[in-house]
């Protein structure tokens, strides 16, 4: 594998977006890019990552390779990333380490790190990326982040309901309750503020607040978030990158006992 990001912070943002959700991950590299999936220890949150060749300045993968890494270690190396530096990932044919080369031609500087790869025997879940959903919402990731931060302070459960009137996020704590209603809008001046809802039926789902606080860490990937809900199935929270690919989170709902 030889894959070069013209801006090293792209890869840093991707890794930082889920490094607190899962501890390790297998990156599966092929001609069609880098794909990964990891599930958290409690088996409630699943992270999917897609970095197609369009995200790179140059991308080459001569034969399919799996790169297993501890995310905490990789994240440490990526602290060196900045917008002035490119980052090339190299993996040899017999992979036992990942080489990261940061280059800042302007400053006549280069940095090289090596990361030991790990053998991860993770069972993969079969996720249908075309999974039909009853409700799809596209909204500002900034707005979503603020709403999650504000409401999750009040309760460890976070409820989402969508009707034709809009999307309602609500929490019911022991001492306080809160509710945020957002209605579809079109902001011609700044389309990242748009909110659109397409739905075939209403939904009402509850999730554990702590996972939502993990998910919003990915908001730096995109100023938009796509939410997909169906009754009694995991929800999908997806951040798509400008150049293709992105990071998605499948979150299992909570049920009335």
């Amino acid at each position: 594998l030889e894959a070069k990001f013209d801006d090293s912070t792209i890869f840093k943002k991707i890794i930082d977006s889920f490094k607190d959700s899962v501890t390790q991950i297998n990156f599966v590299c092929s001609e069609s890019g880098i794909e990964a999936q990891a599930i958290d220890d409690s088996r409630v949150l699943l992270v999917t990552v897609s970095i197609p060749p369009s995200c790179f300045e140059s991308y080459r993968c001569d034969r399919p390779t799996t790169i297993g890494v501890y995310l905490a270690s990789l994240a440490k190396l990526l602290k060196s990333a900045n917008t002035n530096s490119s980052l090339t990932l190299y993996v040899a044919d017999k992979p036992d380490e990942l080489l990261l080369l940061f280059e800042e031609p302007k400053n006549q500087k280069s940095m090289e790190y090596k990361l030991k790869l790990v053998d991860i025997t993770a069972d993969m879940l079969e996720v249908d990326s075309d999974m039909k959903s009853d409700v799809t919402v596209e909204m500002s990731s900034v707005e979503f982040t603020k709403t999650v931060r504000d409401l999750t302070q009040l309760s460890d459960s976070f409820t989402v309901s969508v009707t034709k009137d809009g999307i309602v996020f609500s929490v019911q704590g022991d001492t306080a309750q809160g509710k945020v209603l957002l209605q579809p809008r079109e902001d011609l001046a700044d389309e990242s503020n748009n909110l659109s809802i397409s739905m075939s039926k209403t939904i009402d789902l509850s999730f554990a607040s702590k996972y939502l606080l993990d998910i919003i860490k990915a908001a730096s990937i995109s100023n938009k978030i796509f939410l997909k809900f169906s009754d009694d199935t995991p929800a999908l929270f997806e951040f798509k990158m400008e150049k293709g690919g992105g990071v998605g989170f499948y979150l299992a709902p909570k049920y009335d006992d």
């Binding site: 509850s206 995991p234 909570k254 049920y255 006992d257």
Partner: peptide, 14 residues
């Protein structure tokens, strides 16, 4: 009282 489900119940293992 809400009970947390897991993803196993929804996705097949590969």
């Amino acid at each position: 009282k809400l009970r947390q489900s897991t993803l196993n119940a929804f996705f097949n293992k590969n």
